[in-house]
Design a binder for these strands. Sequence first.
DNA 1: GTTAGCACTCGACTCTTAAGAGTGCTAACA
DNA 2: TGTTAGCACTCTTAAGAGTCGAGTGCTAAC
Lengths: 341, 341
Amino acid sequence: MQLDERKYTILQAIIRTYLETGEPVGSRTISKYTDLNLSSATIRNEMADLEELGYILQPHTSAGRIPSDQGYRLYVDKMMEEKEREVEEMKEILLEKEDKMDHLLKQAAKMLANNTEYAAMVSAPQYHRNKLKFIQLSRVDSRHILAVIVVEGNVIKNTMLTVAEELSDETLLKLNILLNTHLNGLTMEQINLGMIAAMKQQAGIHSDIVAGVIDAVAEAIKADEDLEIYTSGTKNFFKYPELADHERASELITTFEEKQLLSELVQDNLADENNTGIQVYIGNETPVQGMRDCSIVTATYELDEGMKGTIGIIGPKRMDYEKVVKNLKLLKNQLDDLYRK
Amino acid sequence: MQLDERKYTILQAIIRTYLETGEPVGSRTISKYTDLNLSSATIRNEMADLEELGYILQPHTSAGRIPSDQGYRLYVDKMMEEKEREVEEMKEILLEKEDKMDHLLKQAAKMLANNTEYAAMVSAPQYHRNKLKFIQLSRVDSRHILAVIVVEGNVIKNTMLTVAEELSDETLLKLNILLNTHLNGLTMEQINLGMIAAMKQQAGIHSDIVAGVIDAVAEAIKADEDLEIYTSGTKNFFKYPELADHERASELITTFEEKQLLSELVQDNLADENNTGIQVYIGNETPVQGMRDCSIVTATYELDEGMKGTIGIIGPKRMDYEKVVKNLKLLKNQLDDLYRK
DNA sequence: GTTAGCACTCGACTCTTAAGAGTGCTAACA
DNA sequence: TGTTAGCACTCTTAAGAGTCGAGTGCTAAC
């Protein structure tokens, strides 16, 4: 049996209706809804075929049909094939140009959740194997030295070091030169024990400062490993009865709160090299345990210097995919452009 | 009518039983539970009195009684009066000494939530009216200047400034001196437009850098206003049926997610000068809208240099107050000691 | 002051019933 | 051969009736 045009039209009608109502869709509804001018009986026949093909399901005998994961998948794929949707009628999103990235991303998550009425997540950009760019030691007061470490991608880390006695300007300068000469432009792997020993020796009685700086450098470089993820719109789960029963809701909310569980999603996305931009996971396709009853739509954005991050929407399988894709694309573009202009 | 010893014993028995079960408590249960050796009929009489006094409620005729907010209040007050509970049998909490404060606090929230089975929040410490301590400009590469701003309490802010053309070492040094001379030791209020204008004039063609730094300083000083709050254990709300219905849960979760809404709580706590350490809000006493069906127990911790923060537990009114208080005290002490040893 | 007893109340649960939506199948029609 | 009308059947859902039991308030006796 083949999926001909008419069958697809009916499938589409079923899905659209189900997206709105969340209730199983009956043959009569479709008979009236579409402009095919077919009786409910004919629709019933076609529906039986669609069921046999695996695109729709019957929750129980004598209920209407609901789309299966496979059905959604077909629908989404077709939709994505269509020409890039115009984004014109969307109301302008105001991403205020805050200089603090985390504020911006928090705001982005919130906006996504508000616009779509689903739950949203935004991951901070991940950096690729960082090189050290610059180290600066400064005296803050007689007992404290501030070490500022700048890593490729302009990630900055500060550490306050405590010293037993005040350092002279000269000593500070010497240490600054020592550190920068040895370490600039190096990656984690390139900084080895031999170098560290040599530097400590040169630093003499101030070797503890060198040690402190090295620790901070290590931390600054590996900082990308604990991934920052912002979420918003948790309460939207309650808007969809199929997600809102205690057990499911509790699981979803935990997954959403324990942001580490979402990192799978981010990894999955960033790993996919030929990622065209938007990724849709339906039901069991999800890489995130505990969201098997949901659909997840994600996009990958890229800031300057190869820093990539992920934004995503989590909602019921009967999600308004078009709206969601539109929103994600829009935000993705905004983020892509952010540091490019 | 007076609340005599026997009435209080009965009230206590009602509350204790209700804490466990969450079900209205009947007279027969109390008659068996306490060692007063009173028949259910007598208990019924006393209960009628307690109800008249406002300590307990009847959800409907012919149901048992549940404690009123006033009842809880009495119970909690009496409990707090009792000698400081020993904390001995508590299993040791492992607060690994991470140097990153936010990690530590996140972990603290998680631990609280796990230990108590309620939802937990931890606010990052707030600083009091900050003075500028130190400014440092450094050249990162030919087009970028890094401004590091250190504020009293060793709060550090970094800003990357972009310049049209490379600055000489000499210019940089001059700017550094200019900024530090004018601004060090000043508060937000003390930096006025006249000063800024004077500095810009002295900076000549580099006045845009001065402007950039001033902006960053403003932000660093007011940074305490957008308060960082960490939460954990949202799913625990689902453990208590009285909080788990859709409407309530949705509201609670939103409140918990929109951390700004919790700031009331923190403010309320920090404002209270003669705060002995633990604060209990029952039902309507809460300063947080949308948590009127909950009880909230908070503690204030204090790090070095007068930096204060709040930790808290949010749960149903029938909360195990003793356990919660114990946990909060323990964590408070750990945090208090953190930078003191 | 305490208790036993009794009538009464009211929510929770179970069972039944009816309505309604929707199906599959068959037979007739174009 | 594809489409449609009709009908018996299935299954869910909502409403109603009845029962159970926990718990109360009140009264009268100890």
